[in-house]
Nucleic acid binder design. Structure first.
Lengths: 189, 189
DNA sequence: GACTTTAAATACCGATCGGTACATTTAGTA
DNA sequence: TACTAAATGTACCGATCGGTATTTAAAGTC
């Protein structure tokens, strides 16, 4: 089999799980939506959890690559990129198929901290934080860890707000708070 | 039947759903864990969704009451209470049975924005924001809406961080950012 | 104590769950 | 073209899903 077949399956399965949830999507539905029979699916993956794990990993790679590319396109310096984080999130929220953060949802459905799906989802979030930390260091802030964490917390809050429709422009609101935090931190340098 | 019987059912069902998730918890499990037969459950609630909705409503009342009482105990002025929000969250995260925010998880499992469970969960979050807004107004900030939203975003981010174990003390980290924001806002008054 | 009414327990419904045995098709080899 | 091996689709497995019909137990009422 060509590797693209397997990748195609995972990508289509990602759509299904993202839209309908993990436990709510049975293997029959996945088979129907992907156009690949259950037998073929189970030829590639031993269990449903294995498939979901592959879905999480694909989303991890694709989404992180997309987010980084947007941040780097929207900001030309390390400091401006810390704010571009929220512009990129605003773009994400505005996408037609936006249904929240797959990793937050995965942790919500697979609560056991030892579960691979849970751990993989957490790893994604840590990498996001690490990226912000890198930006904060390059921007020359005296306490880059605090800056990075603030950005991360505001971004995650914005995602929750976007899903729950608490405010109209969660990314913009989070950005305003981030501007204040960065300005204050800069003044102390 | 006495009303306490029904309340007892809902409270025990809350435990089950909070620990195992909504779709992952079948009615047979709920019956076993609550010690109430399915027939009795369906005598009180027409469908599983109705039971879940009652669970969400109970959690809404109980959790909001608990959070407000802790915030008011931990802070004696409106401004200090805006920071006590994070101390209360720290207490919550430290509780043995902490498994994240039920409302975030409910929205993750019931994505349809028209679904009553989804809407009820969103309503809870809006009420939290409204409470922060009230505190910000009483504290005399010039733009209480921005302050309240910042607090809310940081708190939600802290919850996500607590669930995903991204950092050791998410509530404390969020508090630090909030302190900076409140100080900056105060200076502009 | 006999009778009625109400509530809960058991057993069961069709549908769907995750997963698989087996028949069928396809592709490669000679 | 005959044969083999890999991949696929179909049909099905026991278990469990949400929900209910029926039976059993409990509580009044006279």
């Amino acid at each position: 089999m060509r590797p693209s077949k397997k990748d195609e399956l995972v990508r289509k399965a990602l759509d299904v799980y993202y839209r309908h949830g993990f436990h709510a999507s049975g293997m029959d539905l996945v088979a129907k939506e992907t156009g690949i029979s259950k037998t073929a699916i189970y030829n590639h993956f031993r269990t449903k959890d294995d498939l979901i794990l592959a879905v999480i990993q694909l989303r991890d790679e694709e989404f992180r690559a997309w987010m980084v590319s947007r941040i780097e396109a929207l900001g030309d310096t390390a400091e401006s990129r810390l704010l571009a984080v929220f512009d990129a999130h605003a773009e994400w929220f505005a996408q037609k198929g936006f249904f929240g953060c797959l990793f937050i949802k995965a942790c919500a459905e697979f609560q056991d901290v030892d579960h691979p799906i849970h751990q993989q989802s957490c790893a994604h979030q840590r990498q996001a934080l690490a990226y912000y930390h890198d930006l904060a260091k390059k921007a020359g802030f005296s306490s880059p860890a605090d800056i990075a964490l603030s950005i991360w917390l505001l971004a995650q809050g914005a995602i929750v707000a976007a899903v729950m429709g608490v405010v109209d422009d969660p990314a913009g609101d989070a950005r305003k708070a981030a501007v204040t935090l960065l300005c204050t931190a800069k003044r102390q340098d």
